[in-house]
Design a binder for these strands. Structure first.
Length: 479
RNA sequence: CGGGGUGUAGCGCAGUCUGGUUAGCGCGCUUGGUUCGGGACCAAGAGGUCGGAGGUUCAAAUCCUCUCACCCCGACCA
């Protein structure tokens, strides 16, 4: 077992940080709450990005880039927005050796500056919709930073769209929520619950916020991505007006949606174990590591290594470039080489030693289950993709089962408190309470409403207020 | 911002209460050797302004004052 990683049962926070350190995903930066995303972590992010970006483009969006600095006055144009974000903004007051006339905010999100630009770009109904995404960094001076989950600066994408009608904007909001769901489920193997946020959990300035909620292996919830229907709030604040087909001057309807490097934290906390990182193959920077094994350096160089390169070339043909690594750390003993890749979450290990050479086979070991087996060497191009596919599905199924096993139905607040205290996890039921009720429940139990799941439209008696006709809800303690 | 804790080698720690030669230990790292299919062993090494500043003292990792940083639990949040 890993000797450099705290056991998950012993101290979940320590375990989480140990896994990240051992896998070399990130390191602490000299500035509070900031992190350095190390090459392995960044490669992982690039794979996540790629999956989103492809789908954004498939749904008609284009990428652009807006500036990092935003005039402070922009933030103040939308009342709820400034209230929500001003406390956590970093502000630039000096530049060029002089005090600035107007302080500049380091963007915490870009609705304001993009709204400002859209007002210049939109005049006619023919200018709509605008479907823009940007990949960038943002800064939120959170009180309690945590690697990947809540860093002062983080990387994300933010989509900002403007539409002529309310219906179109709502449709866009839900379409992008579905894109998030698909990437998270199919690529990251994260079972998520798409749902609508309660009033108390809404994005500052939004009419409605949708979310993909996911359960970590300590049974706490993590908001993995959000999609906001902004109504005409930002259009009115920034004067995004257009003349309709009928000649009327109208405000546009806007949306925004974002997903961040927090997803890497979600990957760690969903799939990893006491040995370290476990990654779903589809986003793992290295999907397969080949280990030539021999005590004889001459045979290694002349026979095993060339053979390993042949296998690599064949796998490159089916997996795409740079997903296969040949381990050449010949100064290490085999056990050390195993652990090296184990801790970095490489989904599949292939061993090519003297035995395999003799038999004409490859031995494989799955990272997620430890399952071992072998197949004929010349079957690698068929067997490896099949194994990776199984790993991907099994990781998702395992996480889904964990969530199901840790989801409990309640019908009263007493039951709610009892379940939360004894088993934690997701609590389902009906909820029709107010913002004040949400606050009271949070103060009493630490749990918050995560969402009203879109997939379950039943109504019933509220577990808190007792009123009928309440919606299905999920409560949980959250990150 | 409230509560708790920690700063000594890359990482984890001992030493601090009770001041006293050259500041230790484990892991890791370097070199050599024996090993080698799930975290080996032997030997020799490298690596420290003890978080920072000031003070007390013949003498400070150790005592005093101030300060900074980080971690954990809350409130706030992608």
């Amino acid at each position: 077992m890993a000797k450099n990683i705290t056991k998950r049962d012993e101290d979940y926070s320590e375990w989480y940080l140990d896994v990240i350190r051992a896998a070399e995903l990130a390191d602490y930066a000299p500035v509070r709450g900031c992190m350095v995303v190390r090459p392995t972590g960044y490669a992982l992010w690039e794979h996540v990005q790629e999956q989103f970006d492809r789908r954004f483009k498939e749904t008609g969006h284009v990428n652009a880039y807006f500036p990092l600095l935003i005039p402070h006055s922009f933030l103040e144009k939308e009342a709820k927005h400034v209230e929500g974000f001003a406390p956590e903004c970093a502000v630039v007051t000096h530049a060029g050796g002089e005090e600035l006339e107007e302080p500049l905010v380091v963007r915490p999100t870009s609705e304001t500056i993009i709204g400002h630009m859209y007002s210049k770009w939109v005049q006619s109904w023919r200018d709509l919709p605008i479907l823009i995404n940007q990949w960038c960094n943002v800064m939120r001076w959170e009180k309690r930073p945590r690697l990947f989950l809540r860093t002062s600066e983080f990387l994300w994408q933010e989509g900002h769209t403007a539409h002529a009608t309310r219906e179109e904007a709502v449709e866009e909001t839900l379409r992008m929520l579905e894109v998030y769901r698909e990437v998270m489920e199919d690529e990251l193997a994260l079972p998520v619950i798409p749902g609508e946020k309660t009033e108390g959990e809404r994005f500052p300035g939004a009419d409605n916020t949708y979310t993909c909620e996911t359960m970590m292996s300590d049974r706490k919830a993590l908001q993995a991505g959000t999609s906001h229907f902004l109504g005409q709030n930002f259009a009115k604040a920034f004067d995004i007006q257009f003349q309709s087909e009928a000649g009327q001057l109208e405000y546009a309807w806007t949306t925004s949606w974002g997903a961040s490097t927090r997803l890497i934290g979600a990957l760690v906390m969903t799939h990893s174990d006491d040995d370290g990182l476990v990654l779903p193959p589809r986003v793992a920077p290295t999907q397969v590591v080949i280990l030539p094994l021999s005590n004889d350096q001459g045979r290694m160089d002349e026979i095993l290594l060339p053979r390993a390169r042949e296998v690599e070339a064949r796998l490159n043909g089916v997996l795409g470039p740079r997903r296969v690594l040949i381990d050449t750390q010949f100064h290490l003993r085999p056990a050390d080489r195993f652990f090296h890749h184990l801790q970095r979450g490489v989904p599949l290990r292939l061993e090519l030693g003297e035995r395999e050479l003799e038999e004409g086979t490859l031995r494989y070991v799955r990272r997620d289950t430890g399952e071992k087996g072998s197949f004929p060497l010349d079957r690698a191009a068929e067997e490896v993709p099949a194994l990776l596919g199984r790993i991907q599905r099994d990781l998702h199924a395992k996480a889904l089962k964990f969530r199901q096993d840790n989801t409990h139905e309640v019908s009263s607040f007493a039951e709610f408190q009892e379940v939360l205290a004894s088993s934690g996890g997701f609590i389902t039921g009906y909820f029709g309470g107010s913002k004040e009720d949400e606050r009271a429940i949070k103060e009493a139990t630490g749990a918050t409403p995560r969402c009203f799941p879109l997939a379950d439209q039943r109504t019933g008696k509220c577990f808190y207020t007792g009123q009928e006709g309440a919606r299905r809800v999920i409560f949980a303690k959250a990150y």
